[in-house]
């Protein structure tokens, strides 16, 4: 047993509205260290909002989210310190188009982590090799395919040595033939023991990698369980309906 059993992410009774629209309703869940949690659900169910609220890209109306021991709902908390430790990968990659691939990976290391230029470049090249794209280090993101861009984006987050990684529909903007290469990188990461929270529509990935599947609908968590349980015998009608539509 690990002596540190404190969860990496612990959300309690989180609620959020966009105007009158109820985006999140009394959501509670936790992600333990090294755990891989996959969040699924129909569009508009609040999965992305939930994920984005973990590093306060969305603020919450009530409840608390404790990330690595820090309550990020507390406005006095310096969120930058938390974000350094929480990598995030976006659906639309969001690489910096005015910087080369290498500079994309070194920028935050230099500015935030205050690493030396050589140290940052070493770390960047190591990760570019790992995601299989080292030969593109001096290219600009615009010259890369979607799959390559997303792998660079993952490497960019990893360059900060985060304690956990959030993935917000990382393959949804990709052409079908490029989804595999990105999922492979994510699977490698999972195997190495990274703590991961993933919003995705890739059920195969969820089944293979997840320790825990969270199913959301209309801003609330409907069902939480292991992939075997969720995909073979979900307890809620709504989850059954969802699975029958997509599988």
């Amino acid at each position: 047993m690990r002596e540190n059993s404190r969860p990496m992410i612990e959300a309690r009774n989180v609620s959020k509205h966009f105007g009158s629209f109820r985006a999140l309703h009394d959501v509670s869940f936790s992600v333990a260290a090294n755990e891989k949690v996959v969040i699924i659900g129909p569009s508009g169910s609040g999965k992305s909002t939930l994920l984005r609220s973990i590093n306060r890209l969305e603020t919450i109306d009530s409840g608390s989210i404790i990330v690595d021991g820090v309550n990020i709902a507390d406005p006095k908390v310096d969120i930058c310190n938390v974000r350094e430790e929480v990598g995030m990968v976006f659906q639309s990659f969001n690489l910096f188009p005015h910087k080369t691939v290498l500079e994309n990976l070194t920028l935050a290391q230099l500015v935030v982590r205050k690493r030396s230029r050589a140290e940052a470049a070493d770390r960047a090249m190591e990760l570019l090799k790992k995601v299989g794209i080292a030969e593109k280090a001096s290219a600009y993101p615009g010259k890369l395919s979607g799959g390559q861009q997303q792998r660079v984006a993952i490497a960019r987050s990893l360059a900060m040595n985060p304690k956990m990684m959030l993935f917000d529909e990382p393959t949804s903007a990709l052409d079908p033939e490029m989804i595999g290469e990105v999922l492979d990188v994510m699977k490698d990461l999972a195997r190495e023991g990274m703590t991961m929270a993933v919003v995705t529509h890739e059920m195969g990935f969820a089944r293979e990698v997840a320790d825990k599947v969270i199913f959301m609908d209309q801003g609330a968590i409907v069902e939480v369980g292991t992939p075997e349980h969720f995909f073979t015998n979900p307890s809620h009608e709504r989850a059954r309906q969802f699975l029958s539509q997509i599988l």
């Binding site: 590093n55 890209l57 930058c80 310190n81 974000r83 350094e84 430790e85 929480v86 990598g87 995030m88 976006f90 639309s92 969001n94 690489l95 910096f96 920028l107 935050a108 500015v111 935030v112 982590r113 984006a153 960019r156 987050s157 900060m160």
Partner: peptide
């Protein structure tokens, strides 16, 4: 500049100013 650029920078731990 697309909103995602600021979000990506913030998620890497940069301050708004940075």
């Amino acid at each position: 500049i697309p909103k995602g650029q600021m979000e990506a920078a913030l998620s890497l731990g940069m301050s708004r100013r940075q």
